[in-house]
Design a protein around this nucleic acid. Structure first.
Lengths: 189, 189, 189, 189
DNA sequence: GATGAATGAGCGTTCATTCAT
DNA sequence: AATGAATGAACGCTCATTCAT
C-alpha cells in the first residue's frame, strides 16, 4: 500500500479555507488556502476536485456544525419556549465564540457556486430545529405560512443578532435575551 | 469624483452594473459592464476610478433608492403602525417589482470592497424610517436596545420576506401581511 | 478613436508561432510565442481567442502560402508534365528555402486541435494544383481513384523528398528530379 | 532498463499507451495510461524511467512489429514484384486490421521526444524490406538515390494508402492494388 | 516491487487598469 | 471626453515525477 490519504490534510484544508475565506471572501485563491494549510497547491486538488467542490463541502461542514451545535443538549421533555431558548443560546454561542467560522459561513451562503445538493445535504442537521419550530408555530398566527419561511425568518433574526454581538460584545447576555424575546413574539409563540 | 460631463454615461454604467451584477455576481468583469452600458472599457474608468468605486457608488445609489422608496407618500400624522405598514408595503413593492435591483443589492451588501463610508452615506435615506422605528420601539420591550440593532432586525425580516416573495409570488399579499405582523410583534409595537 | 489593432502584431505573432512551434512543437507555450513576438501574454489573446485559434489560423496561413507558392508563374498553355514540374520545383523551393515554415507546418498538420473548417479554408489555394492533377491522371491507371487520394499520394512523395533534401542538401537538383520522375511514373502520367 | 520482474505489467503498459495515445495523442497523461493498464502511476515509472522513455520504447515496439508483419511468410525464391506485393499486402493488412496501433504509431512518429537511437533500433526489422527494395531498384532509374530515400518514399505511399483505406474501407482491394502499382511504377520496377 | 499521495513548475486564460490615439 | 489595444500579475488547474509506506 502507498501512503494513504491523510485525513489531517483534509481537515487542515477545510480549516485553512475557513480562515482565508473569512478574511478575504470567496475570491481567496486556492494557492493561499493550500499555503495556509501547509500543503502544496496540487494537494488541495487531491482532496477537492475543484475550488467549487471545496466551497460546497466547507459550506456543508460549517452549516451542519452550526445546526448540530444549536440542538446540543436539548431537553426532550422541556416546554417549547425553553427548548427554543436553548437552541438560540447554543447557536449564538457557537457563532460568537467562533466568529471566523461565522464569517466564512456568511460568505459561503451566498456563493455563486453553491449547489442545491449542498443546501439539501444540510437539511438533516436542521430536522430537530424544524420540529421544535413546527410545534411552536402550530397554533399561532403563522400557522399557514410554509415552515421554510418561518425558519428563514428565525435565521435572519439570529444572524442579525450574531453580527451585532460580534461587533459589540455583550457578555451580560441582555441583548441576546431581548433579541430572543423579539423572535419569540414574531413567531407568535 | 467631480460631476462628469455626460451624466447619461454615468447612469448607463450604473444601470448596466446593476443588471450584470444581479446576473453574474460581483465577479462580473468591468468589460462586461461597459459593454452592457454601450461604452468602452476605458470610459468606465473615466466615471469610476476603480471597480471598487463603482461597487460602492452603486451600493449607495440602490440602497438609498430603496430607503427613499420605503418612505414615499408617508402620512405625517398617521398612527405609527399605519406608517410602518406603509413603509413595509412600499419597501416590499420596490424590491418585488424590481428583482434585478434587489439581487444586485444583495450581492453588493456583502461585497468585500464595501467601505464604511458607503454604509454611512446611506444613513440619510433611512432617517425617516429610523424616526418612526424609534417612536414605535420607545415604550416597548426593545427600548434599551440600540436603534441600529432594531433597524437591522427589521431589515433582516424584510429581506427574508422579499426573497421569499420573489421565489414564490403571492399576489394576494397574505404572506406579506403575515410577515409584517410578525415584525410588528417582534418590535413589541 | 483609440489605438486600432496593429496588423504588425498579428503578423509578429504568426511569425513567432511559426518559429517557436517549429522548434518546440505544438507544446510550445503561448507565453513563449508572445515573448518571441515582443508582446505581452495578454496581447496574444487580443489577436487570437485561444491557442487553438492561433494554431488553426497559422495552419491556414502556411498551408495556403505553400499552395500559392507551388502554383506561382504557372504557364497556362504548357504541357501537363511541365506544369507539374513547375509546381514541384516551386513547392520544393518554398519548403527548402524556409525549413522553419515547413517544420511548423508539419507539426500543425497533425495538431489535435485542427478543425475541419481550417482544412476546408485551405482548399481554394489548391484548386489549381487539383486541376492539373486531374488532367494528368485522367487517362492513366489511376483514373478511377478519388482525386483526394492521388493528391495525398503526391503530397506524401513531395514531403518525403523535402525532408530528405533538408536533411541532405542537394544543390545540383539531381535528387529532386529523380523524385519528380518517380512521382510522374506513380501518377501514370 | 534491466528486464523487470513482471513482464505482464510492461506489456499492459505498452498496450495501454497504444490505446490512449491513439485516442488522445501524445498529450495523454501518464496517469491515464497507468489507469488503462490497471496499475498505479508509480508503477509506470518502475518500467519506464520517463514518459519520453515510454514513448520511445513504444515507437520501437510498434514500428518493429509493423516491419516484421510486412516480411512475414516471404517466399525466398519468388520474383521481386511478388515479394514486394506480399510485403505490401501484409503491411496494409496489419495497419487496417489494427487501426489503433496505426494511429498510435502516426502520433509517435512525430513525437518531439523521439530519439535517433529509437529510429536506429528499428532498422533491423526493416533489413529484409531493404534488401528486396535494393534488388528492385538496382537496375532502374532510382539506382543512384540513397536507399533510405527510396525506403522513405515507399513508406510515404504506404502510409497515405493506409490512412485512405481506414477512412474509406475498400474490402475488394482495388484501391490497394492501384496504389501498389503506383508505387511499383515509382520505384521503376 | 507496488502503491498513490504529494509536489510545484507550468499551463492557458482572464481582467482591472493604463494610455496612445 | 472617448476609445479599445496593451499590459502582466494572478487565477484555477494539470501532470510528470518522487518517495513514504
Amino acid at each position: 500500500m502507498a501512503r494513504s490519504r491523510n485525513p489531517a490534510h483534509r481537515l487542515a484544508l477545510l480549516a485553512a479555507a475557513t480562515k482565508v475565506i473569512a478574511a478575504e471572501g470567496l475570491g481567496a485563491s486556492t494557492a493561499s488556502i493550500a499555503r495556509e494549510a501547509g500543503v502544496s497547491t496540487g494537494t488541495l486538488f487531491v482532496y477537492f476536485e475543484t475550488k467549487a467542490a471545496l466551497i460546497n463541502e466547507l459550506y456543508v461542514v460549517l452549516k451542519s456544525e452550526m445546526g448540530r451545535a444549536a440542538t446540543e443538549n436539548l431537553q426532550a421533555g422541556a416546554p417549547p419556549r425553553e427548548q427554543l431558548r436553548s437552541m438560540w443560546d447554543h447557536w449564538i454561542a457557537w457563532a460568537v465564540n467562533d466568529p471566523v467560522k461565522r464569517h466564512a459561513l456568511a460568505h459561503l451562503s451566498v456563493a455563486e457556486e453553491l449547489g442545491d445538493d449542498s443546501r439539501l445535504a444540510v437539511h438533516a442537521a436542521y430536522a430537530g430545529i424544524a420540529e421544535i419550530l413546527e410545534r411552536i408555530v402550530a397554533d399561532g398566527p403563522m400557522r399557514e405560512v410554509p415552515l421554510s419561511f418561518v425558519s428563514t425568518l428565525m435565521s435572519a433574526i439570529a444572524d442579525a443578532t450574531i453580527d451585532d454581538l460580534i461587533a459589540n460584545p455583550d457578555p451580560s447576555g441582555t441583548r441576546s435575551t431581548l433579541a430572543f424575546d423579539a423572535m419569540w413574539r414574531a413567531l407568535g409563540g
